[in-house]
Every structure is written in structure tokens, then in C-alpha cells.
Simulated assay, not measured.
Amino acid sequence: MSKVNYLVRSILNFPSPKKCPYCNSQKVKSVDRKYVVTTLNECVNCELLFRHPTDSVSFNAKFYQKAYKQSDSITTDLPSKEQLESWKSNNFKDSIKDYSDKIDILTWLTNGPSKILDYGANWGYTSFQLKTAGFNVQSYEISQPRAEFGKELGLQILTDEKNITPGIDLFFSAHVIEHLPDIKQMFLLAQKLLTADGYFVAYCPNGSNAFKQANPFVFHKFWGQVHPNFLSGEFYSKAFKDVPYLIGSNASPAEAIKNWDKKSQTVLDLTGDELFVIAKIKNQRF
């Protein structure tokens, strides 16, 4: 969608109530602004940062079929046969979608490859790497064209959440949650699918106060048209207040992550531009 169309849509939807899409509270404060009518707001109750005007579930489902585009030549662009074979031959090593560091953490969490859901699998580059690492992978993607392309990687990418099989050890998403119109439904789905000792793991752009102070220019750039939500350590600490969690960023050393006892509520360095959360959410009340 062009910036002009986005601006027009924002203007038309501007009169809509300014309320938190997570907890529905109308106690919010504006913390940033773009294009005059588009604001980034913080919920006083749950501390979620969200864009106003917000998007509906139906608009989101339509938008991510074909309209969603990124300019990095891999996230949303389906590769040529030659490019795909090149990436497959070295397991996406040194590409911008090289997830070997994340897979190392996932393997450590469960003491070896386990049952995992790649939620928001796009056209399959993450699922392919997980499968190569020995994980028993299920994949889900809202965009049917990109899910269909997953067959080129030997993957069956589901497009209906009802077809996901429960009993997973890891509910994993990378740069998905910031796009969703209903975060709580994602948490509830993960809770339903995970085993008692399973982990919810999510990576996304960092909206934490520590990152905002460290890099205000990038903080301002991160939220907007395709990122209606801006997740933060402060939000996750409240959302997962009853269960063990580890919250950090890509400024957190790997050894600090692996020192987590998997029982406590721990927050690491939040000055990096990519936020992550690992939480045992089975007993959390949403």
C-alpha cells in the first residue's frame, strides 16, 4: 500500500476511538506522531505502544495476502529458482534471514530439537532452517500466496489456525507480533497449543524505554503503517506477570541468555533494536 493510500485511510479512520487494542483501555497518552493524523500511543494500563488509527482484523487479513511489501528482497519477495537454490544450499547462512543464532537459543531452551510452530512463517525461510536443524516443524502463514511457495522448500505451510496440531514445545514467531491487530488472540492460541512446559518465544522491533533513549531516531522509524504495535519490555513484564519469563534484546550476550534459570522473571539489556521474550505462558491469565 502506498504512503498516500495509508494517509487517506488514516484520515478516514481518525475519528475512531483511541483505545488500547490489547486491554481496551481508553486511558492512553500520545508519545510520537507521523503525518499529523497518525500517532503512537501508550496504554496507561498495560503499557502497550500502538498506532492510531488502528486496523481491523478483516483489513489485516486482506492486506497481508499480496499488498504487504518489504524492500529487503527476501521478506516478501518470492525468490527466483536460482536464488532459492543458492540460499538452500548453504541453509541461508550469512543472509539477512540467517536464524542460526535464534535456533541455537531454541535448541538450548528445550535441550535439543523439539516440536515447534513457526507462526508467521512467510514463504518458509525460517521453517526450512528449523527443519534442517532437526526440529519437528509446523508452519502457519496468513498469506496464501507465500504459504503456497513453501512447497518449493519441501514445506506444508498452513493458512488456517484450526489445522495446527496442539502439543508443541515452542511457539515461535519472528517479526510477526508487531503486525497483528489482536495480540491477545495470539497469546491465547499459543497457550492452547503449548505443552505445560512449553515456551512462547517472540522477536520483534524494540519499543522499550531503554532503546528509545539509546536510539530515538530508529525508535521513531520503527512504528507505522506495517507496525501498528510496538512491543516493549515494559509491556511483556505486565502481560506475563504471573509466569517465568526472560526479556532481552540483541544487545544481550548469548551467555547471559543461557544463564537464565527458566524459573525466574528476568530482564536483560534492552538497548538493542530487536526485542525478544521467552515465557512459559501456560498458567498466565489473559
Rank of each mutant, 00 (worst) to 15 (best):
G207K: 01
P21V: 04
K19Q: 15
Q26E: 14
I177V: 12
A254E: 12
I168A: 06
L48S: 02
Q284E: 15
Q185W: 08
E82P: 03
K69D: 10
Q65H: 06
K192D: 15
P216A: 09
W87P: 00
N250R: 02
V36L: 14
Y119Q: 09
L180I: 12
I168C: 07
A214Q: 14
H175R: 07
Q156L: 11
Y203N: 05
A210I: 07
K192V: 06
T54M: 11
S73Y: 11
Y119F: 15
T159C: 12
K27L: 08
K258W: 02
V218Q: 15
I278R: 00
D55A: 04
D160C: 06
L130S: 01
I74N: 04
F219S: 03
I142A: 12
G233M: 03
A214G: 05
H179F: 03
H227E: 08
L48R: 02
K263Y: 03
A147R: 00
I103G: 03
V176T: 14
Y68K: 09
K34W: 04
K263I: 06
L117W: 03
I105V: 15
S25C: 13
N283H: 15
V226K: 06
Y22A: 09
S89M: 07
K93L: 12
S71W: 07
I116W: 01
N5P: 03
K97A: 08
E47Q: 14
F200I: 06
Q265R: 14
F222A: 11
L40Q: 04
L48V: 05
E152V: 02
V226E: 15
Y35Q: 12
S10M: 01
T107R: 13
Q138E: 10
E47P: 00
S71F: 08
Q156G: 08
G167A: 08
A239V: 11
N13M: 10
L40V: 03
D72M: 09
Q144I: 07
F211M: 15
I278C: 00
P145T: 03
L158R: 10
I142M: 13
S100P: 00
D242L: 13
M1S: 12
L180F: 04
G233K: 01
I116K: 01
F235L: 11
S237F: 05
R33P: 00
L275Q: 06
D94W: 06
R285I: 14
D32L: 00
G154K: 11
N229W: 00
E42V: 08
L40M: 13
R33N: 12
K88N: 11
L106T: 07
F50R: 02
S249A: 10
